[in-house]
Design a protein around this nucleic acid. Sequence first.
DNA 1: TTTACTTTACCGACCAGACGGTATAGTAAT
DNA 2: ATTACTATACCGTCTGGTCGGTAAAGTAAA
Lengths: 191, 191
Amino acid sequence: MGIDMAKRGSARERILTAAEEIVVKDGVSTLTFDKVAEVTGLSKGGILYHFASKDALVRAMVERFVYRFETGLAGLEGTDAEPHGRYTRAYVAATMGDAASTGDQYDRLGASITAALSNFPDLLEIVHQQNIRCQAAVEKDGLDPVEATIIRLAMEGMWMAEVFNVMHLDPAMKQAVIERLIARTRPASSP
Amino acid sequence: MGIDMAKRGSARERILTAAEEIVVKDGVSTLTFDKVAEVTGLSKGGILYHFASKDALVRAMVERFVYRFETGLAGLEGTDAEPHGRYTRAYVAATMGDAASTGDQYDRLGASITAALSNFPDLLEIVHQQNIRCQAAVEKDGLDPVEATIIRLAMEGMWMAEVFNVMHLDPAMKQAVIERLIARTRPASSP
DNA sequence: TTTACTTTACCGACCAGACGGTATAGTAAT
DNA sequence: ATTACTATACCGTCTGGTCGGTAAAGTAAA
């Protein structure tokens, strides 16, 4: 099994995808080389050939995760003609809208990765750097910085809550919040 | 060590506190019976006597955590004369202000506990229930429900980000956000 | 008060399994 | 033959959990 996709993505990518699958289904704590080997159809030795340690594997996962988010966000930014509040709108959409970086599977992955951060403290730096870029962009997006930050925080809160499965916000409320937030990024109604 | 507080709290409480200490310092993944035994000065067998399984230990930690938050919030609510937006203000203060339930140590504990939720899925229910109560209270706090939810989400976002150490918000900005959010709960300026 | 028995709290040795990682041998293409 | 990659066997360590025992503190009948 798994041999049929011999050329569909390098072994490295397939391993990463399998690791994501495991993490999404059962959480980070269950991510082992043996399991990844089983899912990919490779042997444990094969996995270790590509990722010399578990740290390396998790690091690659985090990097791919951050990369996807940033790519998705940049794509959304490109489709917005209005410069005022453009980044903040793209941020809202990339976080909870219908970007490539969203959806159930991606959400749970985000939760697991965020949770993993407490076990792999050195990986925190990757996420941290992305966060600094994000906050800087939001602050100089043409909106009142405090207001823009509130919007960002609210989206972050919604994402986190959803992703950790702690909050079951009513879908209608969720939609209303997103719309209200987007509206506040429009030129007319920023304060 | 530890013997000096022979009467300061039951063994159970001391174990719980030691477990928190470990989790705060090195994360959930390093929480083991052996370590708890070492910190408390008890033996592993002694720990097992009070908490029959690791699940039981973590469950007790989560319960104590939620209890503290709710108690702190209720206390803050009592000191607010203005009913309009009272709960939401208390929520903001309990989350990031200077309640008993806040502070560096408590924050890191919150992170670890939230992270632990992905490893102990059945404990999620405890947090989930508290969250439902919270959201219901926020929605009928006399404010526009969407606005109130945004405030709550923004605080949740700030807390999560801080707690997971992913965001380094400028202290001045943080303060400004909190003040702005509090201002929005006041009768005059809800929309 | 002594004796017999029970309960509570705790200790420390041990085990079975899992996990990260190594060592090594093999294979298929270039 | 070299390179790139894969497979198998194995090791040491860690960890949750078990278990037999023990010391102290009641408790209650004789």
